Amino acid sequence: MRFKHVFSIIGPVMVGPSSSHTAGAVRIGRVARQLLGRQPEEAEITLYGSFAETYSGHGTDLALVGGLLDFDTDDERIPEAFAEAERRGMRFAIKPGSGTMPHPNFAEITARAGGLEASVQGASIGGGNIEIYSLNGFDTGCSGYYPTLAISHEDRVGVLASITGTVSRSGLNIGFMNLSRKERSGAAMTVVESDRRPDEELLEALRKLPHVERVSVIDVT
Rank of each mutant, 00 (worst) to 15 (best):
M1C: 11
V191S: 04
K182S: 10
M101K: 11
V13F: 15
G49S: 13
G115T: 01
H5C: 09
N105G: 02
P40K: 14
L35D: 07
G128M: 02
G122W: 02
S162V: 00
D219V: 06
L36H: 06
A81K: 04
P210E: 12
Y145H: 13
P12S: 11
I174M: 14
V15C: 02
R207I: 05
Q121S: 13
V215Y: 07
S143F: 06
S124K: 04
T100Y: 10
H5G: 10
V13T: 15
E44D: 12
F176K: 14
I28H: 00
V6M: 14
E193I: 09
G59I: 11
A187T: 08
V65W: 01
P17S: 05
E204L: 13
R91N: 13
Y55D: 02
R30N: 03
G29K: 00
A107T: 11
P198W: 04
R88Y: 15
P40D: 12
D75N: 11
M14A: 15
N178I: 08
V212K: 05
P17Q: 07
R112T: 05
S168E: 10
G141I: 05
I78Y: 07
G67M: 03
R197F: 05
G186R: 00
H211V: 03
T60Q: 02
S18R: 06
E42S: 07
N136D: 15
G144T: 10
A187P: 13
S50Q: 11
S18G: 04
P104Q: 10
F51H: 10
G11N: 01
V120E: 05
H58W: 12
V26D: 09
G29A: 12
E44I: 08
E201T: 12
E53T: 13
I10E: 15
V212D: 09
E42F: 00
D139Q: 14
V167S: 03
I9Y: 07
G114A: 12
E41M: 08
D219C: 10
F7H: 03
K95S: 13
T60C: 02
V15M: 10
L69R: 02
P96S: 08
L62T: 01
R184L: 15
P198Y: 06
A43F: 06
E154G: 14
A81M: 05
H58T: 15
L135E: 00
E193Y: 00
R112F: 00
S124W: 06
D219Y: 07
P96T: 01
V15T: 09
E193A: 07
S18K: 02
A161F: 10
D75T: 00
G99K: 10
V159D: 00
V212C: 05
G115H: 08
S20N: 14
T221W: 13
H21P: 00
G99I: 07
G186Q: 03
P147C: 12
Q34N: 07
E117F: 00
S134K: 14
V65M: 09
S180I: 14
P12G: 10
D219P: 09
H5I: 00
V220G: 01
R27G: 07
G175Q: 08
G37Q: 03
H58N: 15
T166Q: 06
H153A: 08
G171A: 12
V157C: 01
T46W: 05
L47A: 06
G99C: 04
G66S: 08
P210I: 09
F106Q: 11
R91G: 11
I9L: 15
P17L: 11
Q39N: 09
L202Y: 02
L179R: 04
R214M: 13
A205S: 12
V191R: 02
L47K: 02
A32N: 05
G141A: 11
